[in-house]
Design a protein around this nucleic acid. Structure first.
Lengths: 331, 331
DNA sequence: CTGAAAGCGCTTACAG
DNA sequence: CTGAAAGCGCTTACAG
């Protein structure tokens, strides 16, 4: 910046004024400064500025995501990025690559870079440092899960209602033996989905059958489980898959048992091209754009000084009928 | 940091030594400092440190991507993130959301945060500031495209060979009237794909037919184009789709014309679940993990002091046969 | 409308 | 093995 000041023949404070759009600089001086900036291809050093700035804002926000291997996470990230860009903030994005032990280190890296806020989709192993940062003024917003062990804003899908909707839809088709195949039980939203499934069964007077409940599945084990269920002596009439990657496994499993036209399927969370399958995949679609947008907007409201009580915002889900969930009972 | 120093009863330089793992600190002093750090939940301010540090490294790298709406971009980002994490660097990721006018501003935001390096998948509208940053020591590596108007390392798919492979495969099935439906012509790799297609046709003595070449398509227009071609009086025998989102459109178009079992299709770039379609989708699969990994590793080699000549690294692609590309000529 | 001095939280270059 | 002083590139708080 001093180079620019020298070349323009002004003080550094004047350069700072021009580059930050502060008032009280004559048009002539502004022009001189801008010419020098152009000449030297100068870019303001925002990080140096934030050191002295009264609010210490770095105009960066940290995003912690479980893994980027999922269209849901991608859409979420994209939505967040759009809001951040609008607010002249940059996104420091980190994923865990499925290794929860990295969480502490990843969050630490974000905090050491003094992000203004943290958008967390998962944070079970770094609670202390997140809470400490929050008490120092770092804004914390949870996405796709509730705040764990601390008070913070959260934006998430209404998983329970979605699971109830899915289960009811299958019951409405006449199915009674409905299996659940879901992902990691240690994830809040996943548990909610299983519980919604059980709630609705009970509401219809059906006791959840442990033999029809498979948890902690990934794509591979979901495939094996679906295949096994389909080929068993007493196969289920329908399957509710509690997560999109599991759903892919279930589809493969049903196909390898040639049961995809016989056993109904509703998946939680949508998948691209799932309308092109045969049968088309019926899903409970989440709204990741909305979750990401709301969470990021909440974060910036907080940065703007909103000190109202922390709140949890539930984003509605909806049923999309494409065929697999509308297979009716045939026996 | 001074709080920690006071609490531990040492100088700030000693705190700095402990936190940066520098030698020559007694075990006892180290313990005192660590206890104070723990007590205060202190996190080093990396950005403040980089200001004074001799190499001025911020341990952050900027990633510019066209849009995150594509599994290819996602896989690329993921691979880059893994390498960056390994190198204790954080990823500032920005996408353009398809708006090229944002490019200058986005790149500027990254540069103003003094990223150590820039990983660019697109950079046609910010050449001057990228080049200026490069000449100041910011490492620039291009991904998924060649360096445009400057000298820099690049890592990209061997698009031309892939397009030749796709076209040859369709010719091998007996097809002669092969259409090309591709995305934005202003993207280098997309142009390479079309050129590979034309090259191979000519090698077989077939003149490319302008009526069978559709460019600048997106998912929607690719669908319309495919449908129109399929329903025309003189439909093509096969289609080579030059980009994955176009491919989705083409699949929809062929289906709506009920031609998906009649007109062969090879798509450039793989899509998840494309083996579950009927027919399964034959593709030229890229290797985004490899592109991202190589590009990030190159970037860190440069930061480590490698001053060898800039080089372009071509990552091989491969044909995956799943059915749609193996439909043989039937007329 | 403009600029000189001080200071943000660190690391550097020294001195002990 | 340890720490005091200076300085990185900015913005703040002033003074003119």
């Amino acid at each position: 910046m001093s180079d620019v000041a020298v070349l323009a023949g002004v003080g550094t404070k004047t350069v700072s004024r021009v580059l930050n759009g502060e008032p009280n600089v004559s048009a002539k001086t502004t022009a001189k400064v801008l010419a020098a900036v152009e000449e030297l291809d100068y870019q303001l050093d925002l990080m140096a500025g934030s050191l002295r700035r009264i609010d210490r804002r770095t105009h960066s926000i940290g995003l912690l995501i479980g893994a980027l291997d999922n269209p849901f996470s991608t859409a979420l990230t994209n939505a967040v990025e759009i809001i951040a860009f609008r607010r002249k903030s940059v996104l420091l994005s980190s994923s865990l690559h499925l290794d929860p032990r990295r969480e502490r280190e990843v969050v630490g890296e974000l905090l050491r870079r003094r992000v203004d806020g943290l958008l967390l989709t998962t944070a079970t192993h770094s609670l202390d440092i997140v809470a400490a940062a929050q008490s120092r003024g770092t804004v914390v917003v949870y996405m796709d899960g509730p705040p764990l062990g601390m008070t913070a804003d959260a934006v998430l899908s209404d998983s329970r209602s979605g699971a109830i909707l899915a289960t009811k839809h299958l019951l409405d088709q006449g199915h009674r033996r409905i299996a659940y195949i879901g992902a990691r039980r240690d994830v809040y939203t996943i548990r909610e989905r299983r519980m919604g499934y059980e709630d609705e069964l009970r509401r219809w007077g059906i006791a959840p059958d442990p033999a029809l409940i498979i948890e902690d599945a990934n794509e591979g084990t979901a495939e094996a489980a679906a295949r096994e269920l389909a080929m068993s002596g007493n196969p289920p009439h329908a399957i509710f898959s509690g997560q999109n990657l599991c759903t892919i496994g279930v589809i493969r499993g049903l196909r390898s048992a040639q049961a995809q036209q016989r056993i109904a399927l509703v998946g939680f969370d949508d998948l691209p091209m799932s309308d092109l399958l045969d049968p088309g995949l019926t899903v409970i679609a989440q709204n990741p754009e909305q979750i990401g947008t709301r969470a990021a907007e909440r974060l910036f409201q907080r940065l703007d000084g909103d000190v109202s009580d922390a709140s949890t915002s539930l984003v509605p889900v909806r049923l999309i009928e494409r065929g697999s969930g509308e297979i009716r009972i045939s026996g």
